[in-house]
Design a binder for these strands. Structure first.
Lengths: 304, 304
DNA sequence: CGCCTCGTGAAAGTAAGTTTCATCCGTGGC
DNA sequence: GCCACGGATGAAACTTACTTTCACGAGGCG
């Protein structure tokens, strides 16, 4: 014994199947039968037990083991795992996703889901890529040092603004959000040097938000704009401009992906600010988490 | 005996790991230890023998088997194969991104941005992968046919609920959102057969939301739950359960990624409903878009 | 024809996976 | 405070899967 060839396979992790078919002719007849089954359908082979595979190849388990050794595996379980991995890797890219486009009229739900998720994920990734850390840094600094933070936004961006306000509030920063323009204007008029005003508008053209930001700036507050369009009107009244990267055509789909992108930016700012005063922020988070604890049921593991 | 719940896993060929982390809180402590090992390094787990894995998780083989059953597998070998396949499919990004983890204390902003964006995008993608189109279809149908839709959510999920309400409203569906529990309960009491109640809760344990959903169900309304944990209490009062797949450890980072995942699901449902009555929905969208037009400035070209 | 070599599968042997069951521990009556 | 209950757990019995050993038989060669 001790003559088993054991062709090394370690240096080609991606080509087990190729490897096997390559040395197929050098295998004994019974082993070849096994090899053919394996090459024909790796995924299926991975599912079978050694006895099962042996039977299918009209041979004994012993031969299957010999086959494993012949192709460089330690034993059958290892072969199985490698086959499963191999089979998984060579799954075809499942679909032609409709990149950035609109949802086709006749689309079924699975298609809709894939398209939306793809666009959403893309928007998030691309937004992060083009975000300028230096600008973020400055914004974070301003917020961390601010006496008060006002967050403005209308419509869909209003939700994001509200979310940001709530987040800042949770880590002990004094932050406000106003669903109403008049109230917002009033508040902006009361801002001063050292305060921060954040305006969120996907299009960058929402007059209400621009107006409020303008007011805040006139009062000496540091103004920040979050928009998808780096040269939109809102950027003209902002000291710092942060942009999202939801590149989309229709208003509808745009509003969807853009919202996620905005939230990602908000999260980054939030974590940045929280990181500035880690201890204090953590404490605040714990306290607020405790506060809602009584509104949770089955706090242990859920169901058995 | 016949008591194993066995959440079906068949419709989500790509998301075993996601599936497992969603189920994590519903597992027993010993099983959780096993689950954590598996999620942390699927490829490694696939290589281990059951005894080996049991030892690593400081438990017995029996528990590992129980874990296999809990996540819908027949036995350990099947889990191994699936894990190997899963691990192979996800070509890991070579860089040291803190996957699903916490932000390191000394991180700079660029690092924070990369980590957050990565986790956010991941949550969106994985949520889409594991979303069951059939369930979505049923939910879409119910909403499209509903006389009235109530959307409930508290805290961060409240924003999502509110967003969903606004979206449905924009395409002409009668939808409500209530920031206040009492008002929500009152509204739920007025629901009836043919109406739809949607409850959103990341943890699935928010008692307010569960309570309201329960009320709605008692009145004959179709109830829908959107949560990250398929076996959380909220699922017990829901006719249809939709899950997100934000797998994260800390409450803080969890709430962030999960929100995006929730929004993605909401978008899918929204587009699904809109697609049902394309003409009517489009008309409604146009009208509402016009309504806010006067609040936009400089509608000319942005960017150069 | 004897003897060697090699491929092969039967069967024995070992390891892996699965089931059963007694024990433990926390929970909720009474 | 006690007890019954039920779920979680690991030890051990058990089953199945995998691996090794070995003997047989076919072909090749002196």
């Amino acid at each position: 014994m001790a003559k088993s060839p054991k062709i090394s396979v370690s240096h080609e992790p991606g080509g087990l199947i190729v490897h096997i078919s390559g040395l197929l002719p050098s295998l004994s007849p019974a082993e070849q039968r096994v090899a053919r089954l394996v090459v024909a359908d790796p995924a299926d082979a991975a599912r079978r037990t050694i006895t099962d595979l042996a039977t299918a190849a009209e041979t004994s388990e012993a031969t299957v083991i010999r086959f494993c050794r012949s192709v460089g595996m330690d034993g059958y379980p290892q072969l199985r795992i490698r086959l499963a991995a191999e089979a998984a890797r060579r799954v075809e890219p499942p679909d032609a996703r409709v990149v950035g486009g609109d949802i086709p009229p006749g689309a079924d739900l699975a298609q809709i889901i894939a398209t939306i998720a793809f666009n959403d994920a893309r928007a998030v990734e691309e937004t992060a890529e083009q975000l300028d850390p230096a600008v973020c840094e400055r914004v974070v600094e301003a917020i961390a040092a601010a006496g008060r933070i006002d967050v403005y936004g209308a419509g869909a961006s209003g939700f994001v603004a509200s979310d940001f306000q709530q987040k800042l509030h949770r880590i002990g920063r004094t932050a406000f959000y106003f669903p109403d323009v008049h109230t917002a204007l009033t508040s902006a008029a009361l801002l001063g040097r050292g305060d921060v005003a954040v305006g969120i508008s996907h299009t960058g053209t929402t007059s209400d938000v621009i107006e409020v930001l303008e007011q805040a700036r006139a009062r000496g507050a540091t103004t920040v704009a979050l928009t998808n369009f780096p040269r939109s009107p809102i950027t003209e009244v902002a000291d710092h401009v942060l942009t999202t990267a939801a590149r989309e055509t229709t208003y509808r789909s745009g509003a969807m992906a853009s919202r996620l992108a905005q939230l990602t930016v908000v999260d980054c700012l939030f974590v940045g600010v929280a990181a500035r005063s880690r201890a204090k922020a953590r404490k605040a988070l714990e306290v607020t988490a405790e506060a809602v604890q009584s509104h949770r049921v089955g706090s242990g593991r859920r169901r058995g």
